[in-house]
């Protein structure tokens, strides 16, 4: 019998929708994973040349240096409004925003709410790491009760600071939302689910079905004061309970998505 022929094949390499530049993110920060997933989805859909991204204010402020496509940098929290302007005059382009929890759920709460309410045909990638990274670890609107930050040094006291906002739960209530899901980046299986959701969100936009958002539970090893690995464990042990994974809104038009895939 003839010996089977094997060929060494490239299985994985850096996405062409990312630039060659290394990121400024801290070691183990999951921003890099989110960037990669978005870029891979854009590669797979073949839409790099038709995609326009909008960077937030926060650690991802320089996202445009890392994505190999047209990009704008928004004012803090205003990315959904800016995306609205861009998309309305570029209706055949794919427009996405990349926003952190301070940007989206605090200072930009009005803009995200109304973009979703209008059913704005944009995709939002929402990075929830329960803390303000860029300014050095202050309380975010998604900081967990009891969680220590530099502005809640004794832990978030709900009597003083109130409760965290659950954006998927809120935005999924709006009729304009077509696809609103929460995924996590704390292990490989969940990262793979996150990528599928990002793909679905971009497909929703491509089909013109309305507002799509993927919330990604993410880590901030530096400001949480943990190793990269410990931080992923902290997501699994603390954040997933406060922010349950799952599909909060899936427009009936997207029949292919399995309910509760992310749970």
């Amino acid at each position: 019998m003839a010996e089977k022929e094997w060929i060494e094949t490239l299985i994985y390499t850096k996405s062409g929708s990312l630039t060659e530049l290394g990121t400024h993110y801290c070691p183990g920060c999951t921003h890099g994973i989110s960037h990669r997933l978005i870029a891979e989805v854009i590669d797979e859909m073949g839409i790099r040349e038709d995609t326009i991204g909008i960077a937030p204010v926060g650690c991802a402020v320089f996202a445009y240096d890392y994505f190999n496509m047209d990009f704008a940098e928004a004012a803090h929290g205003r990315a959904p409004a800016m995306a609205t302007g861009l998309k309305r005059v570029n209706p055949d382009k794919i427009v996405f925003t990349y926003q952190g929890d301070g940007d989206l759920a605090s200072i930009g709460a009005a803009e995200i709410m109304h973009a979703a309410g209008r059913g704005e045909n944009i995709t939002v990638i929402f990075i929830n790491n329960a803390i303000y990274g860029m300014t050095g670890g202050q309380m975010a609107p998604t900081t967990l009760p009891g969680q220590r930050t530099t502005s809640t040094p004794l832990g978030r006291d709900i009597e003083v600071h109130g409760f965290p906002l659950r954006m998927c739960e809120i935005l999924s209530q709006l009729d304009g939302s077509a696809y609103v899901v929460r995924r996590s980046l704390h292990n490989v299986a969940n990262i793979r689910r996150a990528k599928k959701a990002i793909r679905q969100a971009f497909e929703v936009q491509r089909q013109g079905l309305g507002f799509s958002m993927v919330e990604l539970l993410s880590s901030c090893p530096t400001n949480w004061g943990m190793s990269a690995d410990e931080a992923l464990t902290w997501i699994e042990e603390h954040m997933v309970e406060a922010y349950p994974l799952g599909d909060y809104k899936v427009s009936p038009s997207i029949a292919v998505t399995k309910k509760d895939e992310g749970r």
Partner: peptide, 26 residues
């Protein structure tokens, strides 16, 4: 053409910003 009543003047000017980035008269 595009008309949109924004949720606030804050949003309106950022929509202008977005459309301006696309190179249209806004």
């Amino acid at each position: 053409r595009v008309f949109l009543q924004a949720e606030s003047e804050v949003a309106a000017i950022n929509m202008v910003y977005g459309a301006a980035c696309a190179g249209v008269r806004v």
